[in-house]
Simulated scan of single mutants.
Amino acid sequence: MTGPQENQTTRRRAPGMSPEHRRKMIIQTAIPLITEYGSAVTTAKIARAAGIGEGTIFRVFADKEELLHACIAEALSPDHAIRELGAIDIDQPLADRLAEAAEALQAHMDRLGALIGSLGHGGGKHPGTVRGAGREESTSRVREALAELLEPDKATLRRTPEQIAALFIGLLFTQPRTADEPDLTPQELVEVFLHGAASGSAK
């Protein structure tokens, strides 16, 4: 026969999500919805997608504006891109490493651009998360991670890995886009970066 104490133990519910864990879960659910619907997305829609009650959102966010702010900060965070840079096989040739890095960094910027673009204000309401120190810290962390990928070839580089990383990021994010020409693929961009604009047949 099961005693009262055993019954109480059996019926005890699993511990609930911590506020921080719940906050992260809501942000991850909200980002694709904000990208699709912009600021018109409702907290009710986010709650349904997350499988929670709408009131749960307001236990961890003061209002929808704070949730939007948190989503932009999460999209701006370079953590995901840095993890992808860290997973690149360091034994590959330099050109292959840089091509993979370009793909990871372009995907990061595409995600951020899609989110901010959907809100229709270019981040203007949230300067602390999109511009200034936060943006500089993000760029610095990405540059450091990229420099680590360049370190094995340090002896053959014309500048330090940090300087080369900064130049590569500058080229990657400022390449011109024209209506009549497709964007450079990561492989094409790396080829121009490593070998210059002139073809092998140029004199």
Rank of each mutant, 00 (worst) to 15 (best):
V142G: 01
L149S: 07
R59V: 13
E66A: 11
A166L: 07
A49C: 08
E151Y: 07
L115I: 13
E148G: 04
G124I: 08
L194H: 10
E148N: 04
R135P: 00
E148A: 10
F58Q: 07
K154H: 11
H108G: 02
H121L: 08
G113K: 01
L85K: 02
Q175C: 05
L115N: 06
K203S: 11
L119V: 06
I88Y: 02
P4I: 07
I57M: 09
S118I: 05
G123C: 13
G51E: 14
T160M: 07
A73N: 10
D91V: 05
Q106T: 07
E54N: 15
F193D: 08
I46D: 01
P186G: 06
S18P: 01
E103F: 00
Q5H: 08
R48K: 12
F61N: 06
N7G: 08
A145P: 07
A102H: 01
E136W: 00
E181G: 01
P161W: 05
V60E: 10
T160V: 08
T174Y: 01
P186H: 03
E103P: 00
V60D: 06
P93Q: 12
F168T: 02
A101R: 00
R111S: 14
P78A: 14
Q5K: 07
T9Y: 05
V60K: 00
L146P: 02
D180E: 15
C71F: 04
P127A: 08
